[in-house]
Design a protein around this nucleic acid. Structure first.
Lengths: 203, 203, 203, 203
DNA sequence: TATGAATGAGAGTTCATTCAT
DNA sequence: TATGAATGAACTCTCATTCAT
């Protein structure tokens, strides 16, 4: 009984710290992500940070973990539903559009993570997300083209990386000559073309 | 650079500093790239750094500039020669193999730049290189498929990013299930498939 | 000051820093007034200085401000009381004696401020003190010689500067041929003579 | 015969350095008076400075020495001539006007010396000049008031300091309410009044 | 002699972390 | 538990001076 309020208070503190960390990260940038700044933003004393996190990196990790989890949910959702044939028609455009949506949903955070953080910080999460995406893709492809199972790991690895980076870079760079529809179309085209070369008809 | 080296020993100094900077960057990482560490590694006094560089960032820039120039030369070389039909046969596999070579030539440096540096630091150089590659690709495609000129910017943008990231990631991650030949094959396949979808026969 | 000290030990810290600053300034001189030296003298870490002061200059300012405030109080006190006729007799000798007292009270500090600090550092404080003295003098003179009010600003400006510098220089140089009584006598004489020329009888 | 050109060259170098030092001091201020800056301004290498001066302070000393010598000449000239009765009429106004002239002749340098240099740097020169002025004043007063010889040192000390500082401060502060004629008038008044109190009629 | 590259001690300052309260 | 004052190592950078050329 005594533990419940303590845990509740703890959760509140952790939430405040993480929320403040995200704010600092997005608004002030990675270089400004100092313990003092986060503590101030969280209206908490610097010492309190260390009640809940072993060091500065752990706060940053938590902030990014949560964002990555959000992105992960959005991305895998957007993949799973259409691929499972929930709706009729060609699922690929819907998948790609949803992917772009997923990345655009918190573009400022995406920008900080991709442009300011050393990529190594984000590596495990990044690889884990790619792995999950690959698994989904593999399952889908196995379903529509059971025969071509053998070389799948290699193909999904290539395809996932290609699609991912094109989508991310479009969100971040917003190239003037490429509209949202354009990039979705290109992602579809790239995927369909690659799969076709593999002897898989993606529709 | 602050001073244009006039004496022979000045050039020696600059070389020592830049070489030491590269060493520190590769062996100790971006976070350890401090002026004192670079000076120590160069067996030079901290003050000497500032004879030739206005600040720490300028040393780092020089180190990366040189590496980027090397990569740029290797990449554009590997693109230009084969595409110009210097040798017979299908140029695409040779191009992709050369691209992987270019990136592997100094993999440790590639790793530091891609994994430890905030991408923003490297952005101008990165975009410039992509731009050069796109120009070469555009020229080539315009030659073999004059009819499809209109949407080329969009297509080269997509293709260059996709190829680039797949190649870089393969060099850095060395996925167990994908051999060097595999990845070259996949790069060729991806390119050929995409171009085919555009109605361009790349052979 | 960066923080308003909230805890008792904060005030203790600030006092230690300021006291150490004063000690360093007086014993080691202005050139030796470095943050490290002050921190060492205060038996405090360098970082602690920056809890309470934005930079080195602010510590120095605080040290001098306090001394200037002390001097200011002593000087204006010594002027106000006698001039208001609290005691009988001629106030001028008492004023001048008190002025010399005020300056001698912390002669080593006076020496550092006058001889080692760039005067520009101290200018605002200096001018402010002179202004206060002039106001008191003006009030007094207006009382004893209401008719001569017009040119007073000019006359008090001259007189205050003359008296001030003669007194300061006597304290600092301690000329062998001029005793304390001598200089007090001369200050009185100079004042009385000047006022007499203006048609004001100062007794 | 070999020494002459060397000495000539040396003189040229010294002149360049000192001139550059003065320029730097006046235009960039005391804080910017660094050996590198002076060397650059003199179009001479930093190392060459040390052929002619033992250290930075010696250059500064030379710069100030020369200015002090100029001031000294102007001041003692302006005192000697009129006091010796070269012209008729009251010499005091002419003396004081000439004194203000002497100080205004290079006001920017006066400002740097008085406001930016630690007074201790200038002390010996300052005291020497005052001494010379006192000697002239003493001689003059001895001439016109032979009887009052005894206490003269004390009186000239007071008077010289008072006059000097009022004049200097007027030149530097240019108080709005006091014109040049005003300050000359006040200097005359102060002197005449003080001497009168001593029983000396200064006309 | 004159150069200017090289030096290196030391400057002011920051900030992740600790710990007494 | 929560605080926030205190820490101190490490940072970037300067500049009077030296010395090889």
């Amino acid at each position: 009984m005594r533990k419940v309020p303590q845990q509740a208070r703890s959760r509140v503190m952790v939430e405040r710290i993480v929320a403040a960390g995200r704010t600092v990260l997005v608004h002030d940038g990675y270089d400004a992500f100092s313990t003092n700044r986060v503590a101030t933003a969280a209206e908490v004393s610097p010492g309190s940070l260390y009640q809940y996190f072993p060091d500065k990196g752990a706060i940053l990790d938590e902030v990014i973990d949560r964002w990555a989890a959000e992105v992960s949910v959005r991305v895998t959702d957007c993949l799973s539903a259409p691929l499972l044939g929930v709706d009729g028609g060609d699922p690929l455009p819907r998948v790609m559009s949803a992917l772009v949506d997923a990345l655009e949903a918190d573009a400022p955070m995406l920008r900080v993570v991709m442009e300011q953080l050393p990529a190594a910080r984000d590596r495990p999460r990044h690889l884990a997300l790619e792995q999950r995406v690959r698994e989904i893709a593999t399952a889908y492809l196995a379903a529509i083209a059971p025969a071509r199972r053998t070389a799948m790991p290699r193909h999904t690895w290539v395809l996932v990386i290609a699609i991912e980076h094109v989508a991310v870079r479009w969100v971040l760079d917003q190239p003037a000559s490429i509209s949202r529809d354009d990039v979705v179309g290109e992602l579809v085209r790239l995927t369909r073309a690659y799969l076709a070369e593999l002897g898989i008809s993606a529709t």
